[in-house]
Amino acid sequence: MEVVDPQQLGMFTEGELMSVGMDTFIHRIDSTEVIYQPRRKRAKLIGKYLMGDLLGEGSYGKVKEVLDSETLCRRAVKILKKKKLRRIPNGEANVKKEIQLLRRLRHKNVIQLVDVLYNEEKQKMYMVMEYCVCGMQEMLDSVPEKRFPVCQAHGYFCQLIDGLEYLHSQGIVHKDIKPGNLLLTTGGTLKISDLGVAEALHPFAADDTCRTSQGSPAFQPPEIANGLDTFSGFKVDIWSAGVTLYNITTGLYPFEGDNIYKLFENIGKGSYAIPGDCGPPLSDLLKGMLEYEPAKRFSIRQIRQHSWFRKKHPPAEAPVPIPPSPDTKDRWRSMTVVPYLEDLHGADEDEDLFDIEDDIIYTQDFTVPGQVPEEEASHNGQRRGLPKAVCMNGTEAAQLSTKSRAEGRAPNPARKACSASSKIRRLSACKQQ
């Protein structure tokens, strides 16, 4: 084909351009004929944790799935940006308080904090938690009735009371019990989460009196709706648990309003109706937990002794299953770290194939690490110290990083047969305790 000078094309009309061969290198194709290559998922490591896909996002930050490269346990990490926390009232204080509380709590029905990582340079905090497959609110939203069968609701409620009793025994008032803060594992274990607005009572406090509340409006008791200066913290949790039980068994809320002012007005009056299909035992329990006067409201001991709580409820309806993943529609909620794991395991070791967030990740503290002497050669063979940054567990980050890069360049065919977990650990520049 004859090559045409581009400067001469402006002298031709459209018809003349076609005659000189423009149609031979300008093609129009339908979008259905285009085959897009999927974007390669680059592996990203935060300390010893391999990052997966997004699980959810809230006002405080994002939650992603991660894999512990040492234990191969599935975890969830809450990623918090200090810049964003400053824009939220009491944001930083709530996060630090939640970390302090979770560090000393150990119960099967309370979410466990596994690790805390802090990135000084990017001003990011990573709260590594045990993995929960789904939230209770997500399960309720997945069915038209917006409720659980009585047998399933009873099982979840009993676990909620177990976890709540443990928190109260530790002198902690949750203040925000609701389905949105109750998570579930694949085995059906309920976990109380989000202790950001919780309050730890003084060890020598005479009672459970509280003065502040930041919980969700629909789950607040009349004493808070009416603006009382002080109130019983434990009875606030009992009320919120009662509203939660009402919601998961009926699909409704005892109090509603077009806006928060109308909602608080209705809560302050204390008038509500219980659907007739709840039955006398459940209705009596709800009335005891939603008692207007805090002094007359049920205690956890009274809830445990109630006939509806103690009764064994046979399954009359099919239980609400864990819904498919909202993004991938995966009904099994498979591990989202698998594509990243395959990338590390299947590809040659190259620095361009993975990302390490930083050479140094500070753990379990908000301060910069200490310094240790770096050896410097002298005339008599002895070495003197220069400062060298280290990880919180004493690992020399720069030395590990250099060693990792040197190993990656060394030709050794046997290394390709290593397991995925050992490869992740070798790529991680800074081991965590």
Rank of each mutant, 00 (worst) to 15 (best):
V3D: 00
V4D: 12
V4I: 11
G10A: 11
G10S: 08
G15P: 15
M18I: 03
S19P: 10
S19H: 00
V20S: 12
H27L: 10
H27W: 04
H27Q: 04
R28V: 06
E33N: 10
E33P: 11
E33S: 04
P38E: 10
R39T: 02
R42W: 15
A43F: 09
L45Y: 05
I46L: 09
K48I: 10
Y49R: 02
Y49M: 08
M51P: 15
G52A: 05
G52S: 13
L54I: 03
G56E: 07
E57M: 09
S59C: 05
V66Y: 07
T71I: 07
T71A: 12
C73P: 01
C73A: 15
C73L: 08
R74K: 07
R75D: 15
A76H: 02
A76G: 07
V77S: 02
I79H: 00
K82D: 08
K83I: 10
L85S: 09
R87K: 03
A93L: 07
E98M: 01
E98H: 03
Q100Y: 01
L101Q: 05
L102A: 04
R103L: 05
R103E: 15
R103V: 04
R103Y: 07
R104D: 03
R104F: 08
N109T: 05
N109Q: 05
V110T: 13
I111V: 05
L113Y: 15
V114R: 02
D115E: 09
L117H: 06
N119Y: 07
E121M: 04
K122R: 15
Q123D: 05
M125D: 03
Y126R: 01
M127N: 15
V128R: 01
M129G: 05
M129K: 10
E130S: 11
E130K: 10
E130I: 02
C132N: 09
Q137E: 02
E138V: 02
L140I: 07
S142V: 13
V143P: 00
P144K: 15
P144Q: 09
E145A: 05
V150A: 01
A153I: 01
Y166I: 08
H168W: 02
S169R: 05
Q170C: 13
Q170K: 03
G171C: 02
I172L: 03
K175L: 07
K175P: 00
D176P: 00
D176S: 00
I177G: 00
P179Y: 01
P179M: 02
G180N: 11
L182G: 02
L182A: 02
L183G: 02
G188I: 06
D194P: 00
A200S: 03
H202P: 04
F204C: 04
A205S: 08
A206L: 06
A206V: 02
C210P: 08
C210E: 01
T212I: 07
S213G: 11
S213A: 11
A218Q: 09
A218F: 09
Q220V: 05
P221S: 06
P222T: 02
E223G: 01
I224F: 07
I224E: 06
A225G: 06
N226P: 03
G227P: 07
G227W: 09
G227E: 03
G227S: 12
T230V: 12
F231V: 04
S232C: 08
K235H: 09
V236L: 01
W239E: 00
W239H: 01
S240I: 02
A241D: 02
N247V: 04
N247K: 04
N247L: 08
I248D: 00
T250Y: 10
T250I: 10
P254A: 00
F255P: 02
F255N: 01
I260M: 10
K262Y: 09
N266S: 05
I267F: 03
G268F: 08
G268Q: 09
Y272T: 12
I274N: 09
I274R: 04
G276F: 05
G279Q: 10
G279F: 09
P280M: 06
P280Q: 11
L282K: 03
D284T: 04
G288Y: 03
E293P: 04
E293G: 02
P294R: 03
P294I: 02
P294M: 07
A295L: 04
F298P: 08
S299W: 09
S299F: 02
I300W: 09
Q302G: 07
R304G: 09
W308V: 00
H313N: 02
H313M: 09
A316Y: 11
I322S: 08
I322W: 08
I322G: 00
S325N: 12
T328L: 06
K329S: 03
R331I: 08
S334L: 09
S334M: 06
M335R: 12
T336C: 09
T336S: 06
V337F: 02
V338I: 12
Y340A: 14
Y340T: 14
D343W: 13
L344F: 04
L344H: 07
A347I: 13
D350H: 09
D352W: 04
E357G: 12
D358E: 03
I361T: 14
Y362I: 14
D365P: 14
P369T: 13
G370V: 03
Q371P: 10
E374K: 12
E374D: 05
E374Y: 09
E375Q: 07
E376Q: 05
A377G: 06
S378W: 04
S378K: 15
S378Q: 04
G381I: 14
Q382W: 06
Q382G: 11
R384P: 14
R384F: 13
R384Q: 15
R384D: 08
P387L: 06
K388Q: 08
N393V: 03
G394E: 09
T395F: 04
T395M: 06
T395P: 10
E396N: 12
A397Y: 11
A398N: 07
Q399I: 06
L400K: 04
T402N: 05
T402A: 11
K403Y: 14
S404L: 12
R405C: 10
R405L: 14
R409D: 07
P411I: 14
P411G: 07
N412W: 04
N412K: 04
P413E: 14
P413T: 12
A414L: 08
A414G: 08
R415F: 05
K416L: 05
K416M: 15
S421G: 11
S422L: 08
K423L: 12
K423F: 06
I424C: 10
I424K: 09
L427E: 13
A429W: 08
